[in-house]
Amino acid sequence: MALPELDTSVGHSFGLEMDGIVIKQISEVSGLKMEQDVIELKQNSPDGKYMLKKLPGRPKAGEVTLTRGLTEDTSFEKWVQDSQFGKMSSARKGGAVIVYDYEGNPLKRYKLTNAWPKSLEIGALKAGDTSVLTEKLVITYEMMEVE
């Protein structure tokens, strides 16, 4: 049976959707990862030989880093402040990282469960520099699903 020919995706732009609010100006996403523990089962086979079996364990929580150009939008700062001041009921959110094609149509969604901001980093500030100022938001999450 022949495998289907599928076009590979080119991530033209990225967005973050949290509680219905979409921020489409994300320029870089790194660290999206689904991972789980590995359980090693050591046993002897019926003929007495040593065997090592690997079994799937619990899913692991993860972190994703989002980078965008610095703007007047203060949504990242407000979200980080909620978590810093212990307002976890408003800081913990459900949402998704969205990959868009060149026409702005969503290609894939990476749904994040119980996500909250771990840190916010502003890029280097250098007088006379012509590079774009950026902000990096690190979000920790309990579970990720691909939709």
Rank of each mutant, 00 (worst) to 15 (best):
V29W: 08
A91T: 13
L6P: 00
S119Q: 05
D19P: 00
G11I: 01
K42E: 10
Y110N: 01
P106A: 02
V80M: 14
P106Y: 02
T67G: 06
G69Y: 11
V99E: 14
E17I: 02
G20T: 07
I98H: 00
E147K: 12
E147A: 13
T71W: 00
Q43I: 02
A127H: 08
I122H: 09
N105Y: 05
K53V: 01
S90T: 15
T67E: 08
K53R: 06
R109H: 13
L66G: 00
N105P: 00
L125A: 09
T134H: 06
Q81W: 13
N105H: 06
R92C: 02
V146W: 04
E77F: 11
T130D: 09
K118C: 11
L133Q: 09
G20E: 05
I26E: 01
S89M: 12
K78F: 15
S27Q: 06
Q84I: 14
M51E: 10
V22N: 01
V99R: 12
Y102S: 13
S75R: 05
L66P: 00
G31T: 12
L120T: 00
R68C: 10
R58Y: 06
V146A: 04
A96Y: 02
L55W: 04
Y50D: 04
L41A: 01
K118L: 14
E147S: 11
L41C: 02
Q81T: 15
E147L: 12
D19A: 09
D19M: 03
V29E: 10
L120N: 00
L6F: 09
G94N: 15
Y141L: 03
L112K: 04
K118D: 14
F76E: 02
T113Y: 14
L120C: 02
P56G: 03
R58G: 03
L6V: 11
G86S: 07
L107C: 07
K42S: 10
E145L: 14
N105T: 11
P56R: 11
T71Y: 05
A124G: 11
Y141H: 05
L137Y: 07
N44G: 12
N44C: 08
A2V: 08
E63L: 11
Q36N: 13
V138E: 09
E142D: 15
T134Q: 06
Y100E: 06
T134D: 06
T8E: 05
L6K: 10
V99T: 11
E17Q: 05
Y141W: 06
E63A: 14
G57S: 09
L52H: 07
L133W: 00
G57I: 05
G69W: 07
V10R: 08
R68V: 07
R68G: 05
G20W: 09
V38Y: 03
M143R: 15
K60G: 04
V132I: 11
T113K: 14
K108F: 01
R68T: 05
K93R: 15
L112A: 05
S30Y: 04
L41Q: 03
S90Y: 14
L6A: 09
K108C: 08
L66R: 02
M144S: 09
I23S: 01
G20F: 11
G95K: 06
P106Q: 03
D7G: 08
L112I: 14
S83H: 12
V64M: 13
V64K: 12
K33C: 11
K118I: 13
S9E: 08
K53A: 03
F14R: 03
E147V: 10
